[in-house]
């Protein structure tokens, strides 16, 4: 088909819109990078836009030598790894039995689980439960209470449903039990959905802060986002600023930018590689319950 001249112009207009979108998406990151690499004098004089002025790595050095930041980053990384494994395990053992049509009580289990998606007990009842359990201010409170997401469970279940039943049936003929079928057939065939959910859970934990804000008062166990929140808001509050150890305003600016970079870069390095997978995952999540 020969393209008319107007179509070509249309194509370029679309390219232009997309370039604008790309620019809007990366502009804040460029600004942030520039700030984190700039000298404090340049920052105070408002000279930094998209390119670093007075290039130096002072802020990064300070972040990496300050045990408060390095510990928080390390702690959040440990938490993220533990949470991802716990969540994947829970999601799998919840989704897999529910794919057996013949399982008695399946409808009841399903209803019980889906109900919590539409009606949740609310912030305060959950808080009081954790308080009664004696979990407040203990690391476990950042791992277990939100370890199983119904939405993610549905994604995994939909994926399991797409695996041909004949595979399961022939394995059953050979005398394999459900556990064996899960481990040797379902899991190896489910890399895309496992990768997707691992990404969702890991990003959720890495980026999460409201649970820590509500349930964790022990500064030692603050995840990086909560620490960041305190740092970002400390600049508006002299008292907090001195408490967080900022004395020179310009340096505080670049330090803030550098800390945000540390919290952002790990995710930016990971997600593009999983793009193919999470597109499948999101699409499966949309399948009607």
């Amino acid at each position: 088909m020969v393209k008319s001249k107007s179509t070509k112009i249309g194509d370029w207009i679309i390219v232009f819109i997309c370039l604008l979108l790309i620019f809007t998406c990366i502009l804040p990151l460029l600004n942030l990078l520039a700030r984190s690499l700039s000298s404090s004098d340049a920052l105070i004089r408002n000279e930094v836009t998209l390119w670093p002025k007075g290039l130096n790595f002072e802020a990064y050095r300070m972040v990496l030598t300050d045990s408060k930041y390095t510990w928080s980053l390390l702690w959040t990384a440990i938490l993220t790894i533990i949470c991802t494994f716990v969540s994947l395990f829970m999601t799998t053992i919840c989704a897999y039995p529910l794919t057996y049509d013949k399982l008695k009580g399946r409808r009841l289990f399903n209803a019980m689980i889906i109900f919590t998606m539409y009606f949740n007990p609310g912030t305060i009842p959950t808080y009081l439960l954790l308080k009664n359990l004696g979990w407040l201010n203990k690391p476990i409170v950042l791992i277990i209470p939100y370890c199983l997401s119904v939405f993610n469970m549905i994604i995994m279940r939909s994926y399991f449903y797409n695996i041909p039943e004949s595979l399961r049936e022939s394995a059953e003929m050979d005398g394999a039990g459900p556990l064996r079928i899960l481990v040797s057939i379902y899991l190896p065939m489910s890399t895309p959905v496992i990768a997707t959910l691992a990404l969702f859970y890991a990003v959720g934990r890495w980026n999460g802060f409201s649970d820590a804000l509500m349930y964790m008062n022990d500064r030692k166990y603050y995840p990086i986002q909560l620490l960041l929140y305190n740092i970002i808001n400390s600049l508006q509050n002299i008292e907090v600023a001195t408490q967080e150890g900022f004395s020179r305003p310009g340096l505080a600016e670049s330090l803030k930018a550098a800390t945000v970079m540390f919290a952002t870069v790990p995710i930016l390095l990971v997600y593009p590689w999983l793009q193919k997978y999470f597109i499948t995952g999101v699409t499966l999540g949309a399948i009607k319950e």
Partner: peptide, 30 residues
């Protein structure tokens, strides 16, 4: 005999929902 392992697998998730979703629901009476 064939399916007991499936129930075994469900124990943990079901306990999770009971403890973290259904018990707090009883707290709603507050």
């Amino acid at each position: 005999k064939r399916y007991w392992t499936l129930y075994l697998l469900l124990i943990l998730p079901v306990t999770y929902f009971i403890i973290f979703k259904y018990i707090p629901m009883t707290y709603i009476q507050i």
